[in-house]
């Protein structure tokens, strides 16, 4: 069970959230070429370690959050607002 510390609502259980995947994928401009879109849609780091990821607090404030979580220990290092820049610990 993950406990996610929503910056708006406080610490809540993972059951209130929906996962939104790798938060480092950046949508290229609409006129971007195919390779850029391929990267955006399919190319993921899939790190065994710290992962930046989207979580949507659906059953709470309904905000998208940027979470830094470890994919082996499940430790959550930080939870930020969608627009915040976050730092990811070294592997």
């Amino acid at each position: 069970m993950l406990r996610i510390d929503c910056p708006w609502c406080g610490t809540r259980d993972e059951a209130e959230f929906k996962y939104g995947g790798d938060a480092t994928a950046k949508r290229p401009p609409a006129e971007g070429d195919g390779a850029a879109f391929y990267e955006f849609v399919y190319d993921r780091g899939n790190p065994k370690g710290w992962h930046q990821e989207w979580w949507h607090h659906v059953a709470g404030c309904r905000q998208w959050l940027k979470v830094v979580r470890h994919t082996v220990t499940h430790e959550i290092r930080s939870v930020a607002k969608a627009t915040d820049d976050v730092t990811v610990p070294p592997a």
Binding site: M1, D13, Y19, N46, H74
Partner: peptide, 13 residues
């Protein structure tokens, strides 16, 4: 379980 993981153990929800 629904999110990236290498933990080889499931979670309760």
């Amino acid at each position: 379980d629904g999110y990236n993981s290498f933990a080889q153990r499931g979670t309760l929800p």
